[in-house]
Design a protein around this nucleic acid. Sequence first.
DNA 1: CGTTTTTGACCTGCGC
DNA 2: GCGCAGGTCAAAAACG
Length: 168
Amino acid sequence: MENYAPMFPSASSHEFSSKNNNSTKEELFFQGKKSTTNSGFLGLMASMETPNRGSTSFENEVKSCKMKGEKKIKKPRYAFQTRSQVDILDDGYRWRKYGQKAVKNNKFPRSYYRCTHQGCNVKKQVQRLSKDEGVVVTTYEGMHSHPIDKSTDNFEHILSQMQIYASF
DNA sequence: CGTTTTTGACCTGCGC
DNA sequence: GCGCAGGTCAAAAACG
């Protein structure tokens, strides 16, 4: 766990591994709010400002259906519920789409992305709620062990990164 | 020409 | 054991 989590300062709570008896699934659910506490996600938050959205009870069971049962390590997932028109919430990393499936309860398909960096197997999936077209749930899986690969476009990103690294 | 998207097939876990 | 649902692979197309 020497890898720092650039985007999730609160993610340090995932290394507890205290009571992962049988549940291989761990998910932390964040909501895209304007909480300027120390999320370090401001670069992204700038694109989404949704004070209200209290929908909870989001069930998603992760089943680590790996191929050959190599690594059944627990994989923390972080879900972000945002309100945006587009699904592509650019967080600064390079993603390559590797799949798209339709969900049962959802009319909209779910997109699966993967970080294109070598050795970085961070995955993310973007889901759109059928109830509210404007609500997009982005679920991150894994941690990035490399700096953000995005040219400094504007001050928002710079500030975002500064706050991210300042958290450590 | 290299990289990414698209899209169907394939795999796996779970419930019946 | 079979079918369903979710997740991934991989070949070809699309894009710069």
